[in-house]
Design a protein around this nucleic acid. Structure first.
Lengths: 123, 123
DNA sequence: GCTTGACTTTGAGCGCACTCCAACTTGTAG
DNA sequence: CTACAAGTTGGAGTGCGCTCAAAGTCAAGC
């Protein structure tokens, strides 16, 4: 797959895909003899995965750290625990985030109910 | 209350409080005769409220729009519906966000479980 | 009266995550 | 062979939400 196909299927821009490679988030992307990027199915799966991390607001820095661990541990299990811990740390942050969001939503619901009351008073 | 007290109780910096005023998020903050800001309890309640909107990732622009409506509607109800709709719109976005987070968390849990499996295999 | 420190203003700078530009190369279609 | 779309690179620019610097003012304590 060439860069525009990946852009189309992931929703990321070609710019962003090149930038991801530059910062080390995509590693060892193949090229054809013209020097154009060729993405594999593995690359797509990886992009899907980091897309989810991104959706959970993981900083790009941390995703790069994960990518580095993944590459270092290619032939072994030396980095398995580190990667798991990184993900667990993020999971915890997301859970806390969601709790705060839930609390805020409750307040917001109250506020909206208050507005409805005001509007009814004047109807 | 002076700016440092508000900074201390809200966790916002004095810089940020001045900036909030500059962009129209805080309106008509009083001054003493030396020109120093004097914040009221109402200001504090407002800061608490927009702090929650911020925690729910409402863009500052939209908060400013809400602040404008609030000021315009000071003596009437002309802006009540508009304000309610603004909040309802944001509530919807937060709910969708939380659904996506929940879905991502499920994937993340699976991934973490997979790592645990790998580690056990080698134990 | 003088020092100190918290305040004031305007305006510049920063970190993040892209996003775009300029200049150039490559591969395909006519 | 030529035209042109689609790719390449390095580096600059953007929008957001702050964050800080510089230079000056004010007021309370000694």
């Amino acid at each position: 797959m060439r860069i525009r196909d990946v852009a189309a299927t992931t929703g990321l821009s070609a710019h962003t895909l090149r930038w991801y490679e530059k910062i080390g988030l995509l590693r060892s992307v193949e090229r054809d003899r013209g020097g154009r990027r060729l993405f594999t199915q593995d690359d797509l799966r990886w992009l899907e995965f980091i897309g989810r991390l991104r959706e959970m607001d993981m900083p790009v820095r941390e995703m790069v750290r994960y990518a580095e661990l993944r590459e270092r541990g290619e032939q072994g299990d030396a980095t398995l625990a580190a990667r798991r811990e990184l993900l667990e740390g993020h999971r915890q942050r997301v859970r806390e985030r969601m709790e705060r969001l839930t609390a805020c939503l409750t307040h917001l619901d109250d506020k909206i109910a208050w507005y409805r009351g005001q509007e009814d008073d004047h109807a």
